[in-house]
Design a protein around this nucleic acid. Structure first.
Lengths: 205, 205
DNA sequence: ACCCTATCGCGAATTCTCTTGCATTAAGCC
DNA sequence: GGCTTAATGCAAGAGAATTCGCGATAGGGT
């Protein structure tokens, strides 16, 4: 009863319906410009029965979240070449590109909503965040930027890009703004290196 | 027909129901830890009839947005004393305090959702944003920080605070993080001043 | 190949969300 | 005070959204 459907027999039929549903969700997200699709629409678009959708996913939110996680996992890992500016810029441009893509804002909003709704979904999003933080740590390590933490990168790069997308004013991936954000990171790094003399406190929680 | 109820006779009864509804919404936000209240709950909690709620506000989102705007209008204007660090820090602390308060995340999420839903709500949020930008401009003008724009403040201060709150990991208003964020702003300002009036002797270590 | 049962399709039942006329109250204006 | 009508309360009801029981299908282990 409390068993999650699809986790015990992930084989042929189950994965097939899952794929059909995911395809339908992506299609609907594009068609409706990122609006949350209804269960009924997904059912007709995918050919999967309505009751099955409710049994496996409960809500449209978890449905979209499921698709979003798939997308995020498919993405290439962040490159850590040792060139801080280059790595961060590549990451920022890719991020800006993604959030501006059709369905991007919907994914973001869904993740946001999930982070504060069900317990399970919150755990999932936390896992996503941690994976992102690990990638940042690799970039910083490769560049020897020990004065910066992954959270700094979140504050200086990820947060602005996300917030603008959420406010319906995404920044252009091919514009000057990604470079400006990366320059901000470098400026902060530089400032911290300058004040190398007295280390008053370690700002971490 | 297309008339917005409550705008033509804003007097005694109308304002009374409005106050009752607002109080109920705040109460429910606290009780449910920031979750979006249902129309039915607001109706019973406020004593205002369900049909009235639907007629005046249409959705729970616009309801919460209405309350949020009230709150934002009640806040004191941002002080522009000329001391950049002090002004920004005061603002950041106040902001962090607010988003961590009960209902704060719900307000944020609602504003986010509103920015991408109805036309009218999007206009309202845009107005809110612009008012905020004006405040930032005043702070920057008073401090003579012509190298920074209000958007920089959004990217460096507002975005991180908001995003953390949305990710259910609000930063503590009394912790070291507000100071770190403000320090980031000052670092960026410093870097831009250096690049515009290049000092010949840059002691590199 | 066989068995066990997880998963699915189907349709009906149930529970919500939201709307709509109509009567009632009271705001604003003279 | 009296008139007009905006705003509300009330109750019925249309329309979705969500759940449930049952039988059918097919996965995974033996």
């Amino acid at each position: 009863m409390t068993e999650t459907p699809g986790s015990r027999r992930p084989g042929g039929r189950t994965s097939k319906t899952r794929a059909a549903v995911h395809a339908a969700v992506r299609e609907l997200l594009v068609a409706h410009d990122g609006a949350l699709p209804t269960m009924a629409d997904v059912a007709t678009a995918s050919g999967v029965h309505l009751a099955t959708l409710y049994r496996r996913w409960r809500t449209p939110q978890t449905l979209v979240l499921d698709v979003a996680i798939d997308d995020l996992n498919d993405r290439q890992p962040i490159g850590a070449s040792g060139d801080l500016r280059k790595d961060l810029l590549a990451y920022t441009v890719r991020l800006a590109d993604w959030v501006a893509s059709p369905g991007g804002p919907a994914f973001l909003r869904t993740i946001i909503a999930a982070a504060s709704s069900s317990e399970a979904a919150a755990g999932t999003t936390l896992e996503l965040i941690n994976r992102r933080l690990d990638g940042f740590q690799r970039i910083l390590d490769a560049a020897g930027a020990t004065e910066l933490t992954p959270l700094d990168v979140v504050d200086l790069l990820l947060a602005p890009v996300y917030l603008r997308a959420l406010m319906s004013q995404p920044l252009a991936a091919d514009g000057p703004e990604p470079e400006r954000l990366v320059a901000n990171v470098l400026a902060v790094l530089d400032a911290r290196r300058r004040s190398e003399t007295p280390e008053p406190e370690r700002a971490e929680r």
